[in-house]
């Protein structure tokens, strides 16, 4: 049984999804790494932005 916090689950999902998107999304290895990092950054950015929006929205 895996016991993870919400943030840990979100980071794990971002990491694994970014690997797949990096591999299938571009056609050269350098571009793959860059695109994977780009996706990971956007996932994490979205987690923080949406997290703060929910925090502010709930008061």
């Amino acid at each position: 049984m895996l016991e993870l916090s919400h943030l840990q689950v979100a980071i794990l999902f971002a990491l694994l999804a970014s690997i797949v998107m990096g591999v299938v999304g571009r056609s050269s290895d350098r571009a793959r790494v860059r695109y994977g990092l780009y996706c990971f950054g956007y996932f994490i950015g979205a987690v923080f932005v949406l997290g703060w929006l929910m925090r502010i929205g709930h008061g």
């Binding site: 049984m1 690997i19 797949v20 591999v23 299938v24």
Partner: peptide, 17 residues
């Protein structure tokens, strides 16, 4: 890389019940 990421996500889902 695909095997590790996709099956990793699947088994994490199983481990989270």
């Amino acid at each position: 890389a695909l095997l590790a990421a996709i099956s990793g996500m699947f088994f994490c889902g199983i481990l989270m019940q």
